[in-house]
């Protein structure tokens, strides 16, 4: 017997969460629109309210609350989880900009808790220890929007079809090494470009190859871009790193360990914000790159064993 698996709805009309006359929250337009407002900005990892304040002072468009920054997760090992709710409350209370928080891949209850705490965006993140090795979170029923990592277009589309309202490259977090983010940004862009050269018949094969819904694949072939905002993340440590990612097509930047593992976090954070806005102006990038003190030490990704890589978490 043939089984038809219904595709998740892609347009906002079909996913109302609560309705009060004509007023609707949690629509795809409201979720994806929130990511639009973050564009051209920098989202910074913070583990305490004090760090969140430094990030806001520096011009961050949002902060990302997590238990430990990726560099410490690497150093200390163990299972990495959602932040303590008290810590998230503290961060929410400390700043007026949006607060994002990380949940483990597949851990839908962490996501429910984060939504109940009132965070503005959830990152279903490979930086934390995955809670489900088969399923990502079904993100459609949530009112709060989700961002997810991807290494290529197929992965991005699978996340979007599960309800992600924003995509970021995975990169290799906690390394201070931008090489993997570069690879992922170039890969996603190349995959999109290739799709736009395909004819109708080839798109069916492409959908199969990308393991993504045909409708989404056809939409991207037509539009030449993702239907959601694309940020970069994973290993960004300098203003020049951020500017390079923007020139490679990122619409904004996540910085994790790069800021608070450096010599002068406040100054570096402000410099990365400025370099992101003026990413195509080398004079500005040069100017803001001066006198930042020590960058995070960093890890050479090419000599890193596969078991230590975070980018391979999720699928």
């Amino acid at each position: 017997m043939a089984v038809t698996i219904p595709l998740p709805p892609l347009i906002e009309e079909s996913v109302p969460v609560s309705t009060d006359n004509t007023t609707t929250t949690g629509t795809a337009r409201v979720k994806r629109g929130m990511a639009d407002m973050l564009k051209g900005g920098v989202i910074m990892d913070v583990v305490t309210p004090e760090q969140a304040k430094i990030a806001e002072d520096a011009g961050a468009v949002a902060v990302m609350a997590l238990e430990r920054v990726p560099a410490d997760i690497r150093a200390e090992g163990g299972v990495s989880r959602m932040s303590d709710p008290d810590m998230i409350d503290g961060i929410v209370g400390a700043v007026s900009i949006p607060v994002m928080a990380k949940a483990r891949i597949g851990h839908f209850v962490e996501a429910q808790v984060l939504q109940s705490l009132g965070v503005d965006y959830i990152d279903e993140s490979e930086v934390l220890t995955p809670a489900d090795e088969v399923n990502h979170i079904d993100k459609w029923p949530f009112t709060v929007p989700f961002v997810c990592g991807a290494t290529n277009l197929g992965e991005a589309l699978r996340r979007i079809s599960e309800g992600a309202a924003m995509i970021r490259s995975k990169g290799e977090p906690g390394t201070g090494n931008v090489v993997e983010a570069t690879r992922h940004m170039r890969q996603i862009r190349a995959d999109i470009k290739r799709l736009s050269t395909y004819d109708e018949a080839e798109l069916y094969a492409a959908a199969k190859e990308l393991r993504a819904p045909y409708e989404l694949v056809a939409e991207i072939a037509e539009s030449g871009s993702l239907p959601v905002v694309l940020f970069t993340a994973g290993g960004i440590a300098t203003p020049a790193d951020a500017a390079m990612m923007m020139q490679l097509g990122a619409e904004g930047v996540f910085v994790g360990s790069g800021i608070f593992k450096s010599g002068d976090p406040a100054k570096r954070a402000a410099a990365i914000v400025q370099a992101t806005t003026f990413h195509d102006d080398p004079d500005v990038v040069a100017k803001v790159s001066r006198g930042l003190g020590e960058a995070m030490v960093g890890i050479n990704v090419t000599t890193m064993p596969d078991s230590e890589r975070m980018a391979t978490r999720g699928w």
Partner: peptide, 25 residues
Amino acid sequence: GRQIDSFETDVELDGIGEFRTVFIR
């Protein structure tokens, strides 16, 4: 309110008419 309170609704705009509006934070 916060993002979970962000919404769409119809607003009557003087000189324009009814408009589907998207409010985000």
